[in-house]
């Protein structure tokens, strides 16, 4: 099936992405802190978050290379905090995976003593994280552009 990439399609695609990625109630709380209908507060905040995420990804790659599970767990927790605050749920969930396996635990809190398994799961999660982040950035950009 051929895929025509016109504007409407892109819109519906990003909006679907947006719905998957963002918890509206939480994100709306952030938007409520904007004044006068301008996104003076929320927009820079969200782009700060993307910067923070980019920086954290770098640290994660380094820690993964060192097989430093502790640092990976801390980084996961760190990014989980801010993504949750903004309502970026997919990001948050991947960070949770990294934090848990960094602690030698499954997502359900069960013990996973095999370091190789943990590192494998984390590697996978970081990959998902990065892909998701690209999609999210696109959706968020569209969201703020449309608002202007």
């Amino acid at each position: 099936m051929s895929y025509t990439y016109d504007r409407d399609d892109e819109d519906s695609f990003t909006m679907a992405n947006f719905r998957d990625h963002v918890d509206r109630a939480t994100f709306d709380q952030i938007l409520e802190m904007d004044e006068d209908g301008e996104h003076d507060f929320s927009e820079p905040l969200v782009f700060n978050f993307f910067d923070q995420a980019e920086e954290t990804f770098g640290k994660m790659d380094e820690a993964l290379a060192r097989k430093d599970l502790d640092t990976l767990s801390q980084l996961g927790h760190f990014l989980k905090g801010s993504s949750a605050t903004l309502g970026f749920i997919k990001i948050r969930d991947s960070c949770q995976v990294i934090q848990q396996y960094g602690h030698g635990q499954t997502v359900d809190g069960l013990s996973e003593p095999n370091e190789a398994v943990c590192l494998g799961k984390i590697k996978e999660a970081i990959k998902t994280l990065k892909t998701d982040m690209v999609d999210l950035e696109k959706a968020i950009k569209t969201f703020f552009d449309d608002a202007k």
Binding site: M33, F41, L45, N48, F49, F78, G81, S82, T85
Partner: peptide, 16 residues
Amino acid sequence: EDNVINQKVMLGMLRS
């Protein structure tokens, strides 16, 4: 709060 993003959000809420 250690996370800058969270700091900002909390500050925003408290201010509001």
